[in-house]
Simulated scan of single mutants.
Amino acid sequence: MSINVLHLIGGGEIGGAEQNVLNLLKNLDRQSVNPFLGCLTKGSALAPCAQSFGIPSEIFPMQFPFDLSPLPTIIAFCRKHKIALIHAHGTRANLLGRTVARLTKIPCISTIHSLPEYDYPSSLKGRISLWVDNLTLHWSAGIIAVSVSLSQSAAIRLNRKGLTLPVNVIYNGSEIFSFTQPDQMLKAFREQWSIPDHCLVIGTIGRLHPVKGQFYLIEAMKLLTAEIPDLHLLIIGEGPLHNQLTEQLKLSGLSFTLTGYLPSAWQALPAMDLFVFPSLSEGMGLVLLEAAQAGIPIIASKVGGIPELLEDHKEALLVPPADPAAMALACSKVLKDRAFSAEMTARARQKASLFSIEKMVQDTITFYEKIIS
C-alpha cells in the first residue's frame, strides 16, 4: 500500500533544488509512494512542469516570505488527500510544513539542498531566514541532506538546540542524457547563439545569484584573455543579478553570450570547451554531474559538497572560492594540457554514473518508511 506524500517547495524558478524534486517525483515507485506537489509561489514555474508529468500539483501562494496564511488551505488539502508525510524543501516550505505537522500530527521532514544563509542576495535576509528556520526545527521529524557537508552543518544546528533527529545523506541523482552526437550538438548551439567557430568557449550554468559567483568568473576570464585571446564566455541561467551581470559583461570587453534560463540547458554542454562552476557555497552541484556526462573538463570551487562529487586533480580542478587568479590559472592548465584534460574527463564521466536517480529514489523511500514507522 502506497503512502501519500506532499512535497512543499517555493517553485518560483527551476533551479537545482526544483530539478532534484522533479527527478524524485517523476521516478518514485507508485506502489510505495503516491506524490503530490505544493508550490508556494504565485505563477510557479515548477507546478505546470510537474503537472505535465502527471504529478498532482497545487499552488498555495505566500504573499511574503514568512506568510502563514496558506496554512488552512494546506491543512484542508492534507486531510482531503490523506497525506501521511510532508516533505519540505527550503526555508518557506519548512515554516509551513513543520507548522502543519505541529497542528495535524502529520510528520514533516526536510531536505537541505543548500545553506539557508546563502539562499538570499542579502546576507541580512539570509541570517533572518536561518533564524526563522531554527524556530521550527524542533517540529521536524527528520532531515535529508544532499551532501555530507550539509549534514555536518545540520548536525551543528541540532546540537546547539539540543535536538536529536535522524539525518540522512542522500545525494541527488542525475538524469542520464544522450551525448552520442556531440559535434552536431556543438554546431547547432553555436549557430543558434552566433558563437564564432574559432572561439574557445568557457561556460557555466546556474542561477544568476551572488552565491553562484559569476562575477568572479568574469574577472577570471579577463585575466585569461591576456594569454588566450580567442575566448568566449557562455553563461546560462536567470536570476536577480541579470542586469548587473549584463552590465559587467559589457564593460569587460569579453566576447560573451548570456542566454537566460534554458529548459534543457544540458544540450548546450557539448558547445563548451570547459565548464567552470564558481560557486561561493554549494550543497552538491547537480549540474557538475551533467557536465561530467558530457565529457567536458571541469573547474569548480572547492566548497560545500563539490569535493564529495569530484576529486581535485583527478576528476576536476578545484580552486578556492572568490579567487579569479586561481580560476584563470586552472583554466589555462586544462586548456593547454589536452592529455591531462582527457584523463580527467574520463574519470569524471565514470564518477557521475555512481549518482543515479534510482539510488536516490530508493534511499528516499527507505527514509520515508523509517519516519512513518
Rank of each mutant, 00 (worst) to 15 (best):
L262Y: 07
S149L: 03
R157P: 00
P324Y: 06
Y261T: 00
A352D: 12
I236A: 01
A188W: 01
L85C: 06
D323R: 08
R349F: 03
R157I: 14
I144W: 01
V148Q: 15
K222L: 04
L135W: 08
E13Q: 14
S301R: 02
S2Q: 13
M62Q: 14
L269I: 06
I372N: 13
I112H: 08
I128C: 11
G16W: 05
D273V: 00
K187P: 00
I9H: 06
G11K: 10
F36P: 13
D67F: 07
L95M: 15
K351H: 05
I112D: 10
L262N: 03
L234E: 06
L317Q: 14
E311S: 11
M344Y: 00
D67P: 00
G54Y: 08
N20F: 11
S122C: 11
I14P: 06
L103Y: 07
G283N: 12
L254E: 11
L233T: 05
G213D: 07
H138N: 14
L40D: 04
P263H: 12
V167T: 12
L251K: 15
N168D: 12
I357Q: 02
Q51D: 13
I3H: 13
P182W: 10
S151A: 15
Y120S: 09
P72L: 05
N134Q: 14
F177M: 10
A155H: 11
R349L: 09
A84H: 14
K351V: 14
T164G: 04
